[in-house]
């Protein structure tokens, strides 16, 4: 199976493989533009087609998770840091919830 590196991150590929069927193994290779995945079956319970189909389904979900993580990982770390050390982390914000009608704005 050949996957575009532009579409899928290595992390997503690895995580999708992690949750794969127990009777299969996979080897990841790469060239400059693609991930090349070779599946091997260790028993006849499944076919390569079904293994690849399930892998792709998982991969699309893991790619979405990867995107969420990329966009929010710093925020996640800050939330945990603030949770654990509330006195040591101060976040400067311009919280509009304090002034929803913007009555104080400009004063």
């Amino acid at each position: 199976m050949i996957l575009s590196k532009q579409t899928y991150s290595l992390k997503a590929v690895r995580e999708a493989l992690y949750w794969g069927e127990k009777n299969s193994t996979a080897i990841i290779n790469e060239d400059s533009n693609s991930w090349i995945i070779d599946f091997n079956l260790e028993s006849n319970e499944d076919t390569i087609d079904s293994i690849e189909f399930n892998f792709l389904k998982r991969l699309n979900d893991f790619q979405l998770r990867h995107q969420i993580n990329e966009e929010t990982k710093n925020l996640r770390q800050l939330i945990y840091a603030k949770m654990l050390f509330p006195q040591h982390i101060s976040v400067q914000t311009n919280d509009k919830n304090d002034d929803p009608l913007e009555l104080l704005e400009g004063k």
């Binding site: 929010t72 800050l78 603030k82 976040v91």
Partner: peptide
């Protein structure tokens, strides 16, 4: 809608409520 930094306090407080201080 607000910049995510403005959510840190509330989310940290909620997480602490749920999980304690580890």
């Amino acid at each position: 809608y607000n910049p995510p930094a403005e959510q840190i306090d509330i989310l940290a407080n909620r997480l602490r409520t749920k999980k304690g201080l580890y």
